[in-house]
Amino acid sequence: MADVIKKATRESYGEALKELAEEYKDLVVLDADLAAATKTGIFKKAYPDRFFDCGIAEANMMGVAAGLATAGKIPFASTFAMFAAGRAFEIVRNSIGYPHLNVKIGATHAGISVGEDGATHQCNEDIALMRTIPGMTIINPCDDVEAKAAVRAALDFNGPVYMRFGRLAVPVINDAASYKFELGKGVTMKDGKDVTIVATGLMVNEALEAAKTLEAEGISARVVNIHTIKPLDKELICKCAKETGLIVTAEEHSIIGGLGSAVAEAVTECCPVKVVKIGVNDEFGHSGPAVELLKEFGLSAENIAKTVKEAVKNK
């Protein structure tokens, strides 16, 4: 078996911006003194005239992005999720969301896998915050291939898009040659009949690993990758609810307001089945190596398998 290639989606973000710059002449990149970390530095090196550092001033950066968009530019406002969705929330809502401007927000270092920096920088609330803004599209890619495709999809879409990328290198699970990204469409990664694991971001790979374990123990788990959290592929979610009768969600985000909440909201309307949520519970994170933190907070294949087994037993 070939070695698993690992790559952080923030790296994919920076590379995609550079790769797409020639094709999309209006693409410009903003950052708030984090170009080395968000990887927009890759773009900056190649296109210094189209890169604008806003300094440590995220509120202004979002406003500048809005102004650029009114004049036809396609700005990618880039910073950590904590500051993009957290600190600048109201600017994103009022200056980007309300006028529905064509601004792309590249939010890196999302979730608990920020690691050692600890709770202040581990944003587990961004999906919840962004979901409440009318007209906001939210994409949370699971690997390098999907992240790059998401950047292109965001460019082809006219309207505000929040893209969520990670710091931690994660396995590349999609095949670049055959992969097709469809905004707003979930992807069934593995079929199954007893339960559907609906996962997003780095939890998609964990869900696939969990499904293998479960298969060996006689549980047939379907795995659905939801890269676009808003608009949510309700049709697919409801189909899974009807066909498998049980859903377990998995996300590197608070269980309040994220994918789990979105899925639960959808199935209560179309096909009420039990939805068990795996995510960060109602608590702050803390410092530690990312991989250990993911395990500690239950964001692992082991915990998904354990949770699914219990849920299936009580089905």
Binding site: F52, V64, A71
Partner: peptide, 9 residues
């Protein structure tokens, strides 16, 4: 800020 963005554009 939006005005600054328009001016930058």
């Amino acid at each position: 800020s939006a005005a600054a963005g328009m001016a930058l554009a």
